[in-house]
Write a protein that binds this DNA or RNA. Structure first.
Lengths: 262, 262
DNA sequence: CCCAGCTACTCGTCTATACGAGTTTGCCTG
DNA sequence: CAGGCAAACTCGTATAGACGAGTAGCTGGG
């Protein structure tokens, strides 16, 4: 019978028509929710759960995979299954593109990293000229070619988002925007120097499960969605001067917006 | 050997160190991405995949569960496994709380449903007076008791979000806000009639996997995250007059925001 | 002609077993 | 004492089989 080190897990209800692996998942989930297992704690091993519940190992693994899908636990090969630690989230304030930040030579990512007290890094920078996808072309007003700035952002060494900025080639070619390091204040500062005073941004937000390549790039645990953000920057003449396509680890972010009541 | 009705699936690479179930998942994913299987199409049955690849059924099921976790497919008991149809998404424009909409007697949800050409329903309405959680109390400036308005929203019969509005009790008690139907323009219209002219909203956005109760309430397929939105409404005196906690099916929404470049 | 019931097919649950691979521990050897 | 190695533990992958339950289509009886 139940002989688990911690007496936090109960018995199965054989009369229930709820599947055994769901009952086990329920009990583990409840124990986690109640704090019987804290963040980072190791759950009982598969073998221990097998013995505790008197079921086969595959059934136990099935239970654990349910919890993994919910993003509650992560398993580490050779070590065990652990309650997923919630990494500190970074707030994305809606003033992150404020001109005053640029004038202090800070890019949006730096501004936010500073606010969170983390060390920001940029990674796998790649700049190419290419033909835009249909969607990007439409958002930018139909340019034939664009400059694409690819990069990945890390906080304290952990990858948290990767993004691609697209700019009409006629606007960006030969400028500092096409350089690996666009200089203080980032490409928005350069755009304004080029006479494109920024007027407003539009942001579209989706959430979904990551594709395998995104799991790799962001080193995502199973059960962690991504936030997909597409931002379009408009200058005061109403021209779309940049589209930025960003994929963020959802467990690393809270997005904050201010809406005036008009 | 490969004898699948559609010749879209290849063979396994026994020399690869990639696990067999991942190879199978990769091939299915690629076939779906390439459109060999369209939205709503039935994948080959587990038995067919077992015969095609010459592996055991559990291995095939493992592959399919990977794709389910990615939100690519859904399985239906007794029918088969299908490429997940992407339901039409509803855009949440940032002007959805515009005063002009309220003055036309439209609530925010109605405005958006109209824009999408869908039929909106409200469901499981519940109104209670209660003690606020720590978080809600803080956001509202520390009231001892609040009015909580619970409801679920459906579009064309499909549940897409559920939300709870919290208002300081001293403000809402005895008003139309405490009624099941608060009248034209919703509770924001009533707040303004009570002299709380709305000044701005703050919204916080997170994305995560749903808890089991949320899966049930929103009838979510596996592999579909939720968007968790917390909105605070402030009046012109800077007082927080409402906090709305919303959980949305992520596959039903695109959130759109406009940011002025200040 | 319609419908009831059977059958074949689907996925869901569960068992028992085997081996592989990564991690940790501790003992044993030099 | 330090280092290395083996054992014991962890999860990962895969097999083969059994039965249950939901669905759909066919078939035969009314």
């Amino acid at each position: 019978m139940p002989v688990l080190p911690s007496g936090v897990l109960g018995a199965l209800d054989p009369t229930s028509d709820r599947a055994v692996f769901r009952q086990i998942a329920d009990q583990l989930r409840e124990a986690i929710d109640k704090g019987k297992f804290a963040e980072g704690d190791k759950l009982p091993s598969e073998t221990e759960l097998v013995e505790h519940y008197g079921v086969s190992r595959m059934t136990v693994r099935n239970s654990l995979s349910v919890l993994q899908g919910e993003g509650l636990v992560v398993s580490e090969h050779g070590k065990g299954v652990f309650v997923r630690p919630r990494p500190p989230v970074r707030r994305l304030a809606s003033d992150r593109f404020a001109r005053r930040h640029r004038e202090q030579g800070k890019s949006a990512f730096t501004v936010e990293a500073d606010a969170a007290g983390s060390h920001p890094t940029v990674d796998s920078l790649e700049i190419k000229e290419e033909r835009p996808s249909q969607d990007i072309a439409t958002r930018l007003g139909g340019p034939r070619r664009v400059l694409a700035r690819h990069r990945r952002y890390l906080l304290d060494g952990r990858p948290v988002e990767f993004a691609t900025s697209y700019l009409p080639l006629d606007l960006a070619r030969g400028t500092a925007i096409a350089e690996p390091n666009p200089g203080p204040g980032g490409i928005y500062a350069r755009l304004e120097e080029l006479g494109h005073r920024l007027d407003r941004f539009e942001e579209e937000i989706r959430a979904r499960m990551p594709a395998p390549s995104e799991v790799k790039t962001l080193q995502l645990a199973t059960g962690v969605p991504v936030i997909h953000l597409i931002r379009t920057a408009f200058d005061t003449e109403g021209r779309a001067v940049e589209v930025c396509d960003t994929v963020m680890a959802a467990d690393a972010y809270v997005l904050a917006y201010q809406l005036p009541a008009t």
